[in-house]
């Protein structure tokens, strides 16, 4: 009797292991297929081989034209900016860059006026971007830390490791790929997402002013990530350039002062927040359009060349 029960138990155990392995393969496969933006896949598969990499949030994605930078500097350039991402996410991307076979020589890190050090609505650790790649140990660890999942359990159980992709893989099977979004996943072959003209939004007020919140608390995690990013670049002999992109509203002197104080002494800073004052260069208050991005990328490229000398 007991022998029979143990037989069933053993059989169930074997079936569980088998199903676990199958889920571990199928779920990430469909989750990756669901995504339009394939840049992270390229990075993890060592298919990005560029000397200059752009890092940051939507302002990095929309404001820098890698084609212009490539033409002027003569160095290959790739944009790895992700809309709505915070500095902790940027650090994870930097870790992946450092771990890849083709390390860049220069990283242009776009500084958001507030999102870089403060908690701002809509700026977050973009787990959804990383989820399909939890097979990668570095990504898996980052996700585990963020979701308080056990590292040990994710290494033992494939289903547990890949459960973050469960809904997206079902979504792919039902609806196919994710929706196309002009502003976030209209990615060109060098990773940029340039925007044309102005945002067509009747509610949007296109005015050169913004009221900054007076009281904001620095997020200590963001602050330490900012320092770690600089140190990681120095350790890996990557030239880091901190850039304030043009903004169509009052610049934040306070933040600029803070970032200047916090940066490692030999990290160059390009300040271009008040550089473009004409609304024709802007898609909205926070982002350049392609015309502005081309001009700004020219300025950045010249700075890169100057630093090279």
């Amino acid at each position: 009797m007991l022998k029979n029960k143990l037989k069933y138990l053993l059989g169930a155990f074997v079936v569980i292991i088998l199903i676990d392995q199958i889920i571990g393969k199928l779920v990430p496969f469909y989750a990756q297929k669901q995504k339009i933006d394939k840049r992270l896949e390229l990075l993890i598969d060592n298919k990005i081989n560029s000397k200059i990499i752009i890092l940051g949030s939507s302002r990095a994605l929309n404001n820098y034209n890698p084609w212009v930078i490539k033409n002027i500097t003569g160095q290959t350039c790739f944009n790895l900016g992700y809309s709505g991402s915070n500095i902790l996410f940027h650090e994870t991307i930097l870790d992946l860059i450092i771990k890849s076979k083709n390390k860049p020589k220069t990283i242009i890190y776009n500084i958001d006026d507030f999102g870089i050090l403060y908690n701002v609505d809509g700026i977050e650790f973009r787990k959804d971007v990383l989820f399909p790649f939890v097979e990668n140990n570095l990504v898996n660890e980052a996700i585990n830390n963020n979701l308080k999942k056990s590292n040990w359990a994710t290494s033992v159980c494939q289903t547990y490791r890949h459960n973050v992709n469960f809904i997206n893989s079902i979504r792919y099977l039902i609806y196919g790929q994710e929706n196309f979004d002009y502003k976030t996943n209209n990615i060109d072959s060098l990773g940029a997402n340039l925007l044309v003209n102005r945002e067509l939004d009747s509610v949007h007020v296109f005015a050169n002013k913004r009221i900054y919140p007076k009281v904001l608390q620095i997020n200590p995690d963001y602050l330490s990530a900012f320092i770690r990013i600089q140190n990681k670049c120095i350790t890996n002999k990557i030239q880091l350039i901190l850039c304030y992109p043009p903004l169509f509203f009052a610049p934040s002197k306070f933040l600029k002062f803070q970032v200047n104080a916090l940066k490692t002494s030999n990290v160059p800073v390009v300040i271009a927040d008040t550089l473009l004052q004409n609304a024709d260069y802007f898609f909205d208050n926070d982002h350049l359009n392609s015309k502005g991005a081309n001009l700004y990328s020219t300025i950045i490229s010249k700075q890169v060349l100057l630093l090279k000398k």
Binding site: I19, I23, L147, C157, T159, N163, V164, F166, I167
Partner: peptide, 18 residues
């Protein structure tokens, strides 16, 4: 056993939130 196995996998798959 089938119910046990399905339940185990549903639990693991749905433990995808903090």
């Amino acid at each position: 056993y089938l119910i046990y196995i399905i339940t185990i996998f549903v639990i693991i798959l749905m433990s995808n939130v903090p």
